[in-house]
Write a protein that binds this DNA or RNA. Sequence first.
DNA 1: CCTACCGATCGGTAGG
DNA 2: CCTACCGATCGGTAGG
Lengths: 213, 213
Amino acid sequence: MTFSSPDMPVRERCLREATRLFADRGVAGTSIQAVADAVGVRKPSVLYHFASKDVLRVAVIDAMLERWKEVIPRALADAAGGKPRFEAIMGAVLDFFEDAPHRARLLVRECLDQPDEMRDRLAHHLRPWMGLVTEAIALGQREGRVHEDLDPEAYLNEIVVLASSHYAMTTVSHAVAPDRSDHQRDRDWERRCRNELVRIAQTSLFRPRPRPA
Amino acid sequence: MTFSSPDMPVRERCLREATRLFADRGVAGTSIQAVADAVGVRKPSVLYHFASKDVLRVAVIDAMLERWKEVIPRALADAAGGKPRFEAIMGAVLDFFEDAPHRARLLVRECLDQPDEMRDRLAHHLRPWMGLVTEAIALGQREGRVHEDLDPEAYLNEIVVLASSHYAMTTVSHAVAPDRSDHQRDRDWERRCRNELVRIAQTSLFRPRPRPA
DNA sequence: CCTACCGATCGGTAGG
DNA sequence: CCTACCGATCGGTAGG
């Protein structure tokens, strides 16, 4: 029963709380009543704004996918601003999940619950800029900067899967951590995993420099 | 209503069908009635073998984690048989998910639904051989075969996350596929992604050979 | 392993 | 945005 700030329209508060609840317990594990409680209204009020639970589910996913449209221009702007393309795009993707960890959980959950629907939705949302990125990778291959046996589309797919799952399962990853005594160590472990994620993506993309000067 | 082979004990048929249903729709999205229907018995019969839904859930996860204990010796045997360690272990992990894709979905779902419980369970199941593998990686670093800036524990964590999520989300990954006209292309795309997954893990682990002959 | 049954909660509607 | 209410299904039990 965590109330959303009461000065926000009820419709948006429903979206916000439903996003959090769906991410944490899944759609099937979240009742409309639970959303109503979190918002601080009665159940039929939620159903006034969203005709059915499924309508609410679709609206929640839509809201998350819409955010991607802000991420892409930012990455392109960073790249235009002189920042290397890899770091701009990788940074944008990681920031997208990092400043709202439930986004990653929601995304992965929905991929499991509604694979066919998500396949089409992601194709629609990601296709345009996926094309740009794979082209950039292919250019890098022709210029000899990128591993020539790399498969651009497949590479991009695996890295997106890795990034989203990495953030969806941060809590669990502590199982592998060599020691976990206090919270400081937990933070440290998360930083190490994030660094390693970037290193893996980077090392498997770029060829080593031909000869260090 | 897909019946399990009726010559198998009911208890094991419950485990089998529950595993499939939990993987596809999640625990919250699967009723005991649905399990009973799939097995071909009445609901109270399921509850006779598993005192509650949660007991069934735990038994299903246990059965999956038990399989890991068969995977590790196989990988070690392959490695002892002269096969390079990386290929033996990577092959064992991929085979584990590949010959039963719902195992990956079940694992990822449970990591989202019960993160704290899964953290402890995985720690218990994975810790012993995780230690062996990270030691092998550290040895490779001292011998100059493995990237020296690699973080062994974090690397292993990310690769396990990538492998499980890769198989949990195969259906969705087709969103990124450049074209998907027929089933032959789908198979082809899956093969490309699997190859790329192995290439990413391999390239980000081993240093490039010092000088090709 | 079954029939019969329990209270609680589910998603959703009527009507204001 | 609320009260009042619907039938269906939920997890689980009694008793044989």
